[in-house]
Design a protein around this nucleic acid. Structure first.
Length: 130
DNA sequence: CAATTGACTTGAT
DNA sequence: TATCAAGCCAATT
């Protein structure tokens, strides 16, 4: 078994919970995981999917930047794919390639996040470790 | 252990 | 509206 899941693992776990047709911003993901300013780290984690083998698929396309725009750089194909997948899920982009965050932003049920963070601590907060 | 990197954010110009 | 700069973070080297 693994030690406490890395930050990346937590990111993947949370992103896997984003429902179809909804999105989350990098900053919001970080915030939910308890790292208010870790937006970049989240981006790093998702970009790492290219090299990391995750058993369960991660709907990486459901994460966009705070402005509601695709934020992938240096990989036009991937960016295009993300845009296509989101439209496939019913999300509408305006002429400038922006989606309405106030409408598509997902608000995760607290229990979901709580459970995620709990598992992160080894599944059992019992083991007090100061 | 220090430097580097990048699918971020925010606030100022 | 578009650019720019400075913070912030985890993983990599």
């Amino acid at each position: 078994m693994q030690p406490s899941p890395s930050f990346n693992t937590l990111v993947y776990a949370l992103v896997r919970h984003i429902p179809r047709g909804k999105v989350l911003s990098y900053g919001r993901v970080a915030e939910l995981l308890g790292v208010p300013n870790g937006a970049r780290a989240v981006g790093w984690a998702l970009s790492a999917l290219k090299y990391t083998r995750v058993v369960e698929p991660v709907p990486w396309h459901r994460v966009v930047n705070a402005q509601g725009r695709i934020s992938i750089k240096g990989a036009p194909e991937a960016a295009f794919e993300q845009h296509a997948r989101l439209e496939d899920e019913g999300i509408v982009f305006d002429e400038r390639g922006t989606l309405d965050m106030s409408r598509y932003l997902w608000d995760p049920p607290p229990p979901v996040v709580a459970e995620l963070l709990r598992d992160a601590q080894g599944g059992r907060p019992d083991a007090d470790a100061p």
